[in-house]
């Protein structure tokens, strides 16, 4: 095999090495492959890849979901999807979510993470605001609450007649908010729903970024400060470039969540909101499959959703690469 391997044999092991190389499929090696590669791969193939492929096949049939019979219809389901105004509206809402949610969440959590790590007093050691560990714990609270509870809770807060939000606003003298339906007006329903999701995730991404920022050597911040960089300049020139990979990962995770968003949207507006303004694809998929008994069409929706998710991830990678993100990792 490779000359390099034999040309520099460690002293005294040359003969043994020679025999070992010949018995390529030793028990040791086969069992290693079987356990560490075979088993996980089999699990992955059976439980991840094969359902994907199956769903793709079903998306080209008119399967109702409750029989064993189905007819192959080719790409007809996809044609129906793209001429269905409600599904297109849901897709638009998902894209809106995928654009807005990661951006807002990540900016907010970056600001908070900077404040609790490097935003403190400019004298002495680089540190966060006073009591920063307290803020860190408190802002993580929402992430601990299950999504469905967050949805139900905010549904109550937004209640037009007895909700906390309108109670506070009317008590503050803003009479126009008496009985104002935050989730029931087309202008506010989407924004109100987005706020709930952002509220639930800012704390988590803050903790993620805090961990990343802690990994940056303190000398870099000190050096920047000695050079006269203010807090904003430090954040844009030191923090962000150095935790760029974390931001990219966070962006993709949050984007995937935004493309799903099922739990939040169902809890806040089960029917899709006023004029379908908060309807997302996964909701439409669910009702098409289980309420309308059109599993073939629903599978097509799933495939479209998966393609959009992959495209979104690819886009984030591409943008990051084009703006010079890969330089840091090399």
């Amino acid at each position: 095999m490779s000359l390099l391997g034999t040309s520099v044999p460690p002293a005294g092991t040359a003969p043994a090495g020679g025999t070992r190389r010949r018995s390529k499929w030793s028990f040791d090696r086969i069992s290693f492959i079987a356990v560490f590669l075979g088993v996980p791969l089999a699990v992955y193939l059976i439980f991840v890849v094969s359902p994907f492929v199956q769903a793709f096949y079903y998306s080209m049939t008119d399967w109702s979901g409750f029989t064993q019979k189905m007819n192959f219809t080719g790409l007809a389901n996809y044609g129906r999807l793209f001429s269905d105004d409600i599904f297109m509206k849901a897709m638009g809402n998902n894209i809106l979510l995928a654009l807005a949610l990661p951006a807002v969440t990540i900016v907010l959590s970056l600001v908070l993470a900077s404040l609790v790590t490097v935003g403190g007093s400019s004298r002495g050691q680089v540190k966060g605001l006073r009591n920063s560990s307290f803020y860190r714990v408190v802002s993580f609270f929402p992430y601990v609450i299950p999504a469905i509870i967050i949805g139900i809770m905010w549904g109550q807060i937004y209640d037009p007649s007895n909700g906390l939000l309108n109670g506070i606003l009317t008590a503050a003298g803003l009479e126009q908010f008496r009985s104002f339906a935050w989730l029931g007006s087309e202008n506010t329903a989407m924004a109100a729903s987005m706020f709930v999701i952002i509220w639930g995730f800012v704390g988590f991404y803050m903790v993620l970024f805090v961990a990343a920022i802690k990994g940056i050597p303190a000398e870099l911040f000190e050096a920047a400060r000695i050079d006269g960089a203010g807090r904003f300049r430090t954040a844009t020139s030191i923090t962000i470039p150095l935790i760029r990979d974390n931001i990219q990962t966070a962006y993709i995770y949050m984007g995937i969540l935004a493309l799903d968003a099922f739990v939040y949207m169902v809890a806040l507006n089960p029917g899709g909101g006023p004029n379908n303004s908060t309807l997302v694809m996964s909701q439409q998929l669910f009702s098409t499959a289980f309420n309308k008994g059109q599993f073939g069409l629903a599978c097509a929706m799933g495939v479209v959703l998966a393609i959009i998710t992959l495209a979104f991830s690819a886009l984030v990678f591409l943008v990051n690469k084009l703006t010079g993100g890969s330089k840091d990792t090399q």
């Binding site: 549904g155 109550q156 209640d159 037009p160 989730l183 029931g184």
Partner: peptide, 8 residues
């Protein structure tokens, strides 16, 4: 009663 479209 107003606000029904946002009320459970």
């Amino acid at each position: 009663k107003p606000g029904g479209s946002g009320t459970a």
